[in-house]
Structures are given as C-alpha cells and as structure tokens.
Design a protein around this nucleic acid. Sequence first.
DNA 1: AAAACCGACAACCGCATCCCC
DNA 2: GGGGGATGCGGTTGTCGGTTT
Length: 279
Amino acid sequence: MGRQPCCDKVGLKRGPWTIEEDHKLMNFIINNGIHCWRMVPKLAGLLRCGKSCRLRWINYLRPDLKRGAFTEAEENQLIQLHSRLGNRWSKIASHFPGRTDNEIKNHWNTRIKKKLKMAGVDLPTHQPIDLDHENGVHKDGDNKEHENQQVEEKEHEFSTKLNETTTIDDQDLLTNYEVLMTGGGNLELEGAWSSRNTNYSTTSTNSDQGSSSSSIEDSNDLNDRHQSAGSKAQLGDDGEDYGSLKQWVDSVDSMFSWDGFMNTNTTTSTTLAGKWTLL
DNA sequence: AAAACCGACAACCGCATCCCC
DNA sequence: GGGGGATGCGGTTGTCGGTTT
C-alpha cells in the first residue's frame, strides 16, 4: 500500500499555467507568505495541488530568478560541480544564485551532456571514454560511495579553486574541461585526452532567443502568453531577465515593489522582503 | 505547404527525507 | 520510537516552437 497522494487529484487542473493562475499564486504568496503549500491552492483559489504551486513558484515565479542563458563561466562551473557532486542538482544549484535545480538539470541534460558526449567525455565518470575502456575503469560502481563521502570535505577547497578557473575565454569546451579538471580536482587527464581533436559543433544558445517583443498587453491569448513566457522568448543576451519575468514585473509593478527581492537597498519593500525570507 | 523531427524547457510523478505529534 | 503528513529532490514526460525534409 503506497503513500497517499499529496492531494486529491480529482478536479484539479494540470498542464501549463495561465497568467491568471500566476497572478493568483503570486498575489497570495506576496500577501500571505508561504506557511503550508498544501493550503496554498485552496486559499489562493487555484485548482492546483500544492506541489504544483510550489514548483511553479520555485521554478518560474520567484522574483529572484536569474533567467537567462548560461554563461561560459557558469557552464564551466556546472561541469566541474557535476564532476564532484553528480546529479545532486539542488546542491549544484546552491552554487548558482538565481538558478533553479530544474533549470540546471535541464541545461545539463539538453546541452552540456551532449557537448561532453561529443567531446568524448564519459558521463557520469567525467573520464575520457577511450581511457575508461583501455584502463577498465568503472568509477560509477564501487567507488561512488567513497566519492560521495569525499564530496562534502572537498567542496570548500573546490570553491576556492573554481574561482581561479572562470576567466577562460575563446577555448572550446574540451579545452575548458581539461583546464577545469586539471586545476580543480583529482581527475587524471592523460595525453590522449588532452590532445583529443574536438570537432563537435556548438549549438546556438539562448542568446538568440532574446528578440521577443511579446508583451502581456499584446496578447489576450493565455496560451500564447504562457508559451512566450514559459519557454522560449524571454531571455536577454546578457543574462538579464528581459523577457517574461520583466514583463510580469512590469505588469504588476503598480501592485508590488520588487526591489526587496532583488537585493537592492530600498525602503519601499521591507514587508515583501520580510515575507520573502519565509521561503 | 505540410509532415516529421529535434531541441528546449515547463511540469509531473514517485520516492526520500524531514518534522511534528 | 514510530506513524503520518508536508516538503524536497531527481528522473521522466509533455508541450511547443523551430528546423529539416
């Protein structure tokens, strides 16, 4: 007999969130804070389960989200963190202020994973594939537990070293990876690995997605609004939240002051900031 | 022009863990 | 101590826009 579902799914809405739902959830959290996710949908007038509300808030509505293309430095940091922490996305996300674990996980699975694979890196071992094969290394088995025990001990040291490796420019991913691994950790990079020819093709990044001119005012179609907000067209080249979040903030600017969420010094948002700390 | 395919990301699901009684 | 509810987390799926055929 399994555990009970987090909520009664009968009659609950699923799928993409509409702007009205976003408004309701945002309004409720701003005005009341978060005490019990289970009660949030009821009190906010939403036909969603608490879990869904939590995810929506954490991954999309939270005003302090960075939202933007991952920079090269961030990708490098992510690669190295993953080599240390594995798929512990929440742990990794804690090193990226404004990024969510879901965002990082998606970025890893859709971009970095592919790039590393094309570059000949065996995941999750972060070892060159051919070297693994030749040496018979299978680190994801017996050694994994031991590695996990070392993770916490090395994090502090690692963070220090990481700061020394974030100025890499104009090198391909493999070269970056080599530098990072050599500088930050205990992976051995042998000649064949170092000299590997990297002819993978980098795909376009989100930086080409920042040209959207959609706005809330432009569209009464909630699905269109959601799509433009929720996936493709909200990102600016410089990583700032030029898209949906900014539009969203603009749209509710008359109701709220966001400065408190943005870690800026303001006297108009102390209440909001206070509630924000509840999270 | 349209169908098929692909990439990116939002959202869901189920298990793990935490916490309170 | 343990039972149960709430929340956290990671894997997976769904959806949609863009691209290719």
